[in-house]
């Protein structure tokens, strides 16, 4: 049962966390917001953006501010699953023992995940979904909070392996890291070139605080009509009879049921971060893009005509009436 004090502590803790991140990261408020949605809802976040936009800094700042363990995995084509998950090693006198990989951390940065081979990607994504690692017949659970932030370069490059749709679906949200504005860029340069550089923040929240905040967000009530609205939004992305002409024309596969879950989790987290204790339809609409865009599989015609999933989701939001 959620208490008032628990709610208040969670709200205060995340207020401090946001302020701390804002002191370290210039701009990218939307990306930070979506990252916090993932943290609060227990999902994983895919960050898409070209190198050098502060994705790694964001994740490291978040981990430090939360006082959680952090590991970074730089995905390369020769990265093997054992390099991520860990492996059984033989030591004299002890026999085989499991040596945990970098995935055994609270916050994992999977950098440039699309550079690894599908086999390695699959190992990571399976661990993300199952929240456990099985090696040598032994299952090793991953300690909560287990939060993966993966980045991928949108520029198609040689030697990359785009994530298949089924694996993209494992990420609850997707955020796009965009180029900073001029003022933001000036501030970034100034912070990195003056003084001793960027200092990582001290922890402002504990692991328990994060788990408690997750409980609070999970307890947020969502009325039935809002659940139905989320379901209608998800179904509206499917090219079925009665769907929008744009959807029928440009979408090959619509969002999966995980899209509906992402909508509600995102709405709850957004309401919590907005200081409310209830969810509105506007929260669902706000969560729609990060929750749905990476779940749409577009047709070749859409790619040829430059139609993006963002446009599809925006049209769906316009057409589906809110309760």
């Amino acid at each position: 049962m959620i208490t008032e004090a628990q709610v208040a502590r969670a709200e205060q803790g995340f207020a401090r966390l946001r302020a701390t991140i804002a002191g370290a990261i210039v701009g990218q408020t939307r990306v930070v917001e979506v990252a916090l949605w993932g943290l609060l809802s227990g999902g994983h976040v895919l960050l898409e953006g070209v190198p050098g936009l502060g994705k790694t800094l964001l994740v490291r700042t978040l981990a430090h501010a939360l006082g959680l363990t952090f590991s970074r995995i730089q995905f390369t084509p020769d990265l093997m699953p054992a390099d991520i998950l860990g492996t059984n090693v033989f030591t004299e006198g002890e026999g085989f023992r499991f040596l945990p990989g970098p995935i055994f951390a609270h916050i994992v940065l999977a950098d440039e995940i699309n550079r690894a081979t599908p086999k390695t990607q699959s190992a990571l994504l399976e661990a993300m979904q199952e929240r456990q690692v099985t090696a040598g017949g032994t299952t090793h659970p991953l300690e909560e909070p287990f939060f993966v932030l993966a980045t991928q370069n949108p520029i198609e490059m040689e030697g990359t392996y785009p994530l298949p749709e089924a694996q993209l679906d494992r990420f609850l949200f997707k955020a796009e890291v965009t180029y900073p504005e001029e003022k933001e860029l000036v501030e970034i340069i100034r912070r990195n070139t003056e003084g001793g550089g960027i200092a990582l923040p001290a922890p402002v929240m504990s692991r328990e605080d994060v788990l408690s905040a997750r409980e609070v967000v999970a307890a947020y009530p969502v009325p039935g009509p809002l659940m139905e609205y989320a379901a209608r939004l998800v179904l509206a992305t499917h090219p079925r009879p009665g769907a929008l002409e744009t959807v029928k024309r440009y979408v090959r596969y619509g969002a999966s049921p995980r899209g509906g879950l992402a909508l509600i989790w995102g709405a709850k987290a957004h309401a919590f971060l907005a200081g409310r204790h209830h969810v509105e339809a506007g929260d669902i609409r706000t969560a729609a893009l990060p929750a749905l865009v990476h779940r749409l599989v577009l047709t070749f015609r859409a790619e040829a005509e430059g139609i993006t999933p963002h446009r599809i989701v925006a049209e769906v939001l316009e057409e589906v009436p809110a309760p």
Partner: peptide
């Protein structure tokens, strides 16, 4: 008051006293 009334109805049904009190106060 937006969705507070509906939320209050739901948290009372789930016996979520903390959230219910917060919503009632709002």
């Amino acid at each position: 008051v937006g969705g507070r009334l509906a939320a209050l109805w739901l948290v009372l049904a789930r016996e979520e006293g903390g959230l219910a009190e917060l919503l009632r106060r709002e």
